[in-house]
Amino acid sequence: MDSETKQTTFSKSTGLPRKRFYRARAHSNPLSDSHFPIPTSPAHVDFSLHFPKFVEAENKISKKVEFADIGCGFGGLLISLATLFPDTLMIGMELRDKVTEYVKERILALRRTSSDGQYENISVVRTNSMKYIPNYFEKGQLSKMFFLFPDPHFKEKNHRRRVISTHLLDEYAYVLRAGGIIYTITDVEELGEWMKACLEKHPMFESLTQEELDSDPVVELLCSATEEGQKVARNGGQTFRAVFRRIAYVS
């Protein structure tokens, strides 16, 4: 992008990228072969490029990523979490290239305009997290994973495209540490039941109690922070939430 077009894609008043220049289709096929670079293993991911303010000597990063927002969309949740957990590194994963590009520009713009070095702890990668989660994170690296308003895939033959399934939960359980929390929410009742059923059935997850949900500051952000959540609230729609903890397990 040359500098002239770059200026016009950013809002003059806020300095943030304008969404209408990053229009993308609502869905992307998770089954197709990926043609973007994929790290060979977690050791090959250079997170120092994502979090330059956390780089220490020898280009090593001082912390590991702990939160992952899977299918981060336009990045609303990441931006809210950034200030709530300023010392935690978090990454959004998104399959649609234009949307990823938008989130990247949005974070860079927020970093520029923020007065006290905020938003240095969030970043985004374009990837297919249904295929490549183990290429990014080591065993037990994550403490929180988010699946907010995922693609519902109504048809039965497309259920295998859903981002929450018994088999994919095996992989999420692998990258989550014991005690780590998985947050899911949707405005589609059928999908909400599906996600809850998958998590309840899985031997490595247990549901959070109501008290635990009430005391967790992240829970209310699931609806209020994301673009999709705001849209549902505007239309007065219902949401269906499932929040589960990864438990220690011996098979």
């Binding site: 293993s41 490549y132 095996d170 992989e171 692998y174």
Partner: peptide, 27 residues
């Protein structure tokens, strides 16, 4: 997709093998 998954073979395999021991990544 270049990966080898190492899964604990459970005592009751008919209920699924959920515990992943490691991924061998490098190819």
């Amino acid at each position: 997709d270049f990966k080898i998954r190492v899964t604990v073979f459970p005592k009751k395999p008919l209920e699924g093998a959920h515990e992943i021991q490691s991924f061998c990544l490098g190819h």
